[in-house]
Nucleic acid binder design. Structure first.
Length: 146
DNA sequence: CGTTTGACTACGC
DNA sequence: CGCGTAGCCAAAC
């Protein structure tokens, strides 16, 4: 599959960001990609379209045993991108559930409740990263309880 | 070797 | 709201 320039370096940054995601919250591939400056000679417009897929590759190559909460990275729709019904997809859903992240009736995660808008400004500055765009909806979430 | 295949997303119908 | 497509390339087949 396609890879970003400096594959290993890019992956390491993705994993580092992923480790910042608090338990019980989630970020999207696109958000993480938006935080990382375009690597190598990648132009911003190409990066905007390819970044999220590269983040997906980083997740696919997540090193085990290093505490990278890969399950907290989901797609822009709020769903799991792994093949539906696969062992890995079920594990991701299970891990998120044990963290308290719940799926709505459409099988999607509500960003207004579980979405994380990134690390604080100091951390971003220290790591030369940009703040990610928020995935939270502008209009207030309607409470459908009762 | 030539083909297929992706942990994605924005955009146009 | 659903579906197709571009973007763009290293590996596995």
């Amino acid at each position: 599959m396609w890879n970003p320039p400096d594959r290993e370096v890019f992956f390491a940054i993705v994993w580092k960001i992923t480790q910042q995601i608090p338990e019980g919250l989630v970020m999207t591939y696109g958000q993480i990609a938006a935080m990382i400056p375009p690597p190598g000679d990648t132009t911003p417009d190409v990066y905007e379209r390819m970044g999220s897929r590269w983040v997906g590759q980083a997740m696919n190559n997540t090193p085990e045993g290093q505490g990278v909460p890969w399950q907290r990275v989901i797609n822009s729709k709020g769903g799991i991108s792994l093949l539906a019904g696969s062992r890995a997809a079920e594990q991701q859903r299970h891990l998120l559930h044990t963290e308290g992240v719940e799926f709505n009736e459409k099988g999607l995660i509500d960003f207004n409740i579980y979405g994380w808008d990134g690390p604080d400004a100091d951390w971003l500055k220290a790591n030369d990263l940009y703040p990610p765009p928020s995935m939270k909806s502008d209009d207030p979430q309607q409470l459908n309880l009762f």
